[in-house]
Simulated scan of single mutants.
Amino acid sequence: MLNPQHLAIFATIVQAGSISRAAIQLRCGKSVLSRQLARLEQDLGARLIQRSTRRLALTEIGELVLQEARQIGRALDNIEQLADQHQQQVRGVLRVSCSMAGRRRMVPLLAEFTALYPQVKVTLQMEEHLVDLIAEQIDVAIRAAPLADSSLIARKLSDNPSVIVAAPAYLARAGTPQTAHELRAHACLIYANGDYVADQWVFIGADGPYTVPVDGPLRINDGGALVTAAAAGVGILRVPRALAAEEMARGELVPVLAHCPLPPGTPVYAVYPAREFLAMKTSAFVDFLLARIGDQKPSAHT
């Protein structure tokens, strides 16, 4: 009889891309995984993976077995989560994904969460691209917008409004703009990532939205680094308020053009896979975020 755990391990090896990475993820030795994979192939009487020094390649039957192995892996996860719920224990490894900019807010929250739940170990994955929660086994992702994916659940955490700020030293040196159009004459700090460059700042006027082109000495693909540059007096910055909250509270950054309305911010969501049995660690973390940041009802992506 086939060992379901061996099938789940096979799926993990394929997802990880190598036995070495799977061993790190599963916290066990490479030799242990190699033996279990070999035992599965022996039980099936077929080779599932063609091994080389550079990569793993699935055989034809390996592709077919993988589809079923993933279902078995999810079933084993559900059984474990059901047991966790029954025992009412918040424990295990919690895998969280957020953007690079979000780390400034997320890391202190994770420190607080692990202090509340010492049996939870958190793995934080910071990416600028959207990750596949299912394929990469992410428990909770923090995203600036929900996705049209019916296999995911989203909980709105905050509206994430933006603010325009500058250091008092910069304003003392360069003057304080009184209208949005005066930003053209100022050094502005710009978020840029690949082909995306946020050098057109939108405002809401009496007749509707209008755009002001801005420029300046720095273009950075990290919001936290832009906040640091603004606090150092390099220029004026438009940024989500939450990202600059600490600097504003300390007076290192002050609001600019507060009388000029900005469009609503992009809401921030906690996104997690829809499962029949949600692990206690996941539900506890989402509830924790809602308590610290906001509270909205869950919604399934469609």
Score class of each variant (00 low, 15 high):
W201Y: 10
A185N: 10
Q178V: 08
L147M: 06
Q88Y: 04
A83E: 14
V131D: 05
R184E: 13
A180F: 11
Q71V: 15
L152K: 03
P177M: 09
L124P: 00
Q89K: 14
Q87G: 09
I153R: 06
A115R: 11
S162K: 02
N160L: 03
E112D: 15
Q87T: 01
P108G: 13
L110M: 12
V165Y: 08
A83I: 04
Y117P: 03
R104I: 04
N78F: 08
A166I: 07
I164P: 10
V131H: 03
V122L: 11
I204V: 13
H129T: 09
T114G: 11
S97W: 01
A198P: 02
I190G: 11
A141Q: 01
Q71H: 07
R143P: 00
P177L: 11
H129E: 07
R105L: 12
L109A: 15
A145Y: 10
F203K: 06
D84Q: 14
A169G: 07
E128S: 10
K156P: 00
Q119P: 02
D149M: 00
A148H: 09
D195R: 08
T114H: 00
H129P: 00
P161G: 09
V107A: 15
V197L: 08
L124K: 00
N78T: 11
S99H: 03
V202K: 08
E127L: 05
I142M: 12
R91C: 15
V197E: 12
L157P: 00
Y191P: 01
S162W: 01
L110I: 15
P168V: 13
L110P: 02
C188E: 06
A141G: 06
A83N: 13
A141M: 07
Q88I: 08
R105A: 10
E182Q: 14
P146G: 06
I142N: 03
P177Y: 13
M106P: 02
M100N: 10
R74A: 15
R143Y: 02
A83M: 11
Y191E: 01
L94R: 00
L130G: 05
P168Y: 09
A174R: 10
V120Y: 05
L110C: 11
F113C: 03
P108N: 13
V197F: 08
G73R: 10
Y196P: 00
D159M: 05
V140G: 05
A141R: 00
P118I: 07
